[in-house]
Design a protein around this nucleic acid. Structure first.
Lengths: 155, 155
DNA sequence: TCCATATAATACGATATCGCATTACATATA
DNA sequence: TATATGTAATGCGATATCGTATTATATGGA
């Protein structure tokens, strides 16, 4: 019961437990700052389009976040309803669409970032951004492994 | 636009982005192994009770996972329906209850761990448990900060 | 003791997430 | 070219999550 396998198992459970709690806490924290009815998942899409450039397909965005495409389809419809993104036909594939941010979307994103800034500033003070930055490659490695494991079940 | 504040902001966004993707991927992966209708959130409660001991109140469990108590109330009702936990009155507080795992609950937990084992074993091979273990204190620090920030809004 | 306030649990309603099925279009192979 | 198979997006239904309100009990001060 205290062999290595069990101990490793505990380590991984502890990892996913910490991860899920951090996800939970950060989502709740940020969602509390966003306007009523705007979720972190919505903001994240706008942020993504701003960072990597818009004109992406829904499927590309879904795989960037690793969420099911039906989930993203729903999110996009909400963003569209708010006038923050527009869907254009994809000239190179008639089944597909391209997602563009509107000016209103960009404006909203900037104001949301402004709203989150005090929390972020407090975080900078208590959690050293250098340390965080140093963790990112390790996390990316875990993510990348899980991503591969998904396509390639049971290794 | 390339000042430190913006760069730190990006670092934190990147952190929460990685975290949420890992949460997503690991949840989907493990949920795929559990019986139909059993979610990771259910398994996690059984696992928690096994690790820290049962006879906890719903509220204690909710704060261990940092989820709203209504969410946990729902999860417990499902676990109870499946016969994996039992609720007893709390002798020291009549408003409250104590949650106990049943034998069936313990059996299910063990079989679920067995089911997850091949994934875990593959993980051990690709992600060094020592490295993971080394990350845990950093993650715990982030979690702990977010937890404090929640009670103590805007610091 | 009485009352105000706090706390534990849950019911209820709204909605985000997600799996499955469907539709439209694309691509490969005969 | 015709047909089979694959892929993009979305509609639909089921349900987990979560905020608000409610009920029961606890606690601290007048």
């Amino acid at each position: 019961m205290s062999d290595n396998k069990t101990s490793d198992l505990r380590t991984f459970f502890a990892l996913f437990n910490e991860i899920s709690i951090i996800e939970q806490l950060s989502r709740t924290l940020f969602e509390g700052r966003l306007p009523k009815g705007v979720l972190v998942s919505h903001f994240a899409v706008l942020n993504h389009l701003s960072r990597v450039g818009d004109g992406r397909t829904p499927l590309q965005i879904a795989s960037a976040f690793q969420v099911p495409k039906t989930t993203l389809s729903h999110t996009l419809s909400l963003l569209e309803k708010r006038g923050w993104v527009e869907m254009q036909p994809n000239p190179s594939d008639k089944r597909s669409k391209l997602v563009y941010m509107t000016d209103a979307g960009r404006t909203f994103r900037e104001s949301a970032i402004g709203t989150l800034e005090p929390d972020m500033a407090a975080m900078f003070k208590h959690l050293n951004p250098r340390d965080i930055k140093a963790m990112l490659p390790r996390l990316a490695e875990i993510r990348s492994y899980l991503d591969r494991a998904r396509d390639d079940p049971q290794e």
